[in-house]
């Protein structure tokens, strides 16, 4: 079976600027993939290449084995896209827009079935969208909902979502998360580009981190955590001792009787060092995605600084 997304050596330069450099991705059907990076890292460029809207300067991108640039119409049959900025037709109503987007998707022989329409109606209710309103009169968040409903209602095999929750309020963001989880249960593949780490952490099986057009880290959350330090907080009976010098481990005093250690790899050296002290509690926590992410970016700044 073809992967939902496969890119090999995918690159894009705009004039002198390299927007994306040698991207190799392979995303299996049914996977929910989080694509992380700050603004300008190349997330949207990647999606434009995946959709065949821009022409790759190097390499190629395939959706379910179909070349994204060479045969976009066939490639898009199984794909629904939500852009970060909703660009819709101001004079159409929200309902007309949904109807238009669904009709343009269906090929001539498969008109949307009654169950599809019923599902769309349910989504409209869940997202609390007023379909009689013209797009011009909708707020950005509401226009974003139009795009989301249109994409989710298609039940396309692959959902390409580019910062889909920008402009949504927290309640609607929860609805969005539910919908993505339902899509996952139905076996749809989701490519979620985002800089909202909690969202990616809550939804995604696998994460890729993009920096300056390059994929610098990729793996499941568990794998990424192994690469990062875990946090260990130790509370002592009475005054905390002077922190022992341990290679690779950083330490801060957070209270008179508490020390917080950042430990990469095994905990053994720390446990050994704590021998003979009165330890009241010892709490260890895995790094959040945010910490992993910042770890990678701080590293980047250090390297760039040198």
């Amino acid at each position: 079976m073809n992967p939902a997304i496969r890119t090999s050596g995918l690159g894009k330069r705009y004039g002198e600027t390299v927007a994306l450099d040698g991207l190799d991705l392979e995303i299996r059907p049914g996977e929910v993939y989080g694509y992380l990076g700050p603004n300008g890292a190349g997330k949207t460029t990647t999606i434009r290449l995946l959709l065949g809207l821009h022409r790759p300067s190097a390499g190629r991108a395939e959706l379910f084995g179909v070349d994204a640039w060479g045969d976009p119409v066939r490639a898009h049959r199984n794909v629904a896209y939500v852009a970060g900025e909703p660009f819709l037709w101001p004079s159409l109503t929200a309902g007309e827009t949904l109807e238009l987007l669904s009709r343009l998707r269906a090929s001539d022989d498969e008109r949307s079935s009654a169950s599809d329409i019923a599902y769309r109606e349910r989504l409209v209710q869940r997202f609390e969208l007023d379909v009689r309103k013209k797009v011009r009169a909708l707020s950005k968040g509401n226009r974003q909902k139009v795009q989301l409903i249109a994409a989710l209602a298609t039940r396309a095999e692959l959902l390409l979502l580019d910062e889909p929750t920008s402009g949504l309020d927290p309640l609607m963001e929860m609805v969005f998360r539910e919908c993505v989880n339902e899509a996952k249960d139905r076996g749809q593949t989701v490519f979620l580009s985002s800089h909202i780490l909690s969202e990616v952490e809550a939804l995604c099986d696998r994460v890729g981190i993009l920096r300056d057009g390059r994929l610098i880290e990729q793996g499941t959350l568990a794998e990424l955590r192994h690469l990062s330090a875990q946090t260990v907080e130790v509370t002592f009976a009475g005054q905390a001792p002077a922190p022992p010098p341990l290679p690779g481990i950083t330490v801060v005093a957070t209270a008179p009787n508490t020390l917080r250690f950042q430990v990469p790899g095994e905990l053994t050296p720390l446990i050994d060092a704590l021998q003979g002290h009165h330890v009241l509690t010892l709490r260890s926590r895995e790094p959040s995605l945010e910490e992993i992410f910042l770890h990678h970016y701080d590293g980047a700044h250090d390297r760039a600084g040198r």
Binding site: S91, E96, R103, R132, K134
Partner: peptide, 23 residues
């Protein structure tokens, strides 16, 4: 006032060209 709501008129919205005619 602008008319912010309108009854749906989906007749032309079957194709990209239909959309253009509508616009």
């Amino acid at each position: 006032p602008a008319r912010d709501t309108a009854p749906p008129r989906p007749r032309l919205l079957h194709s990209a060209t239909g959309l253009a005619v509508r616009g």
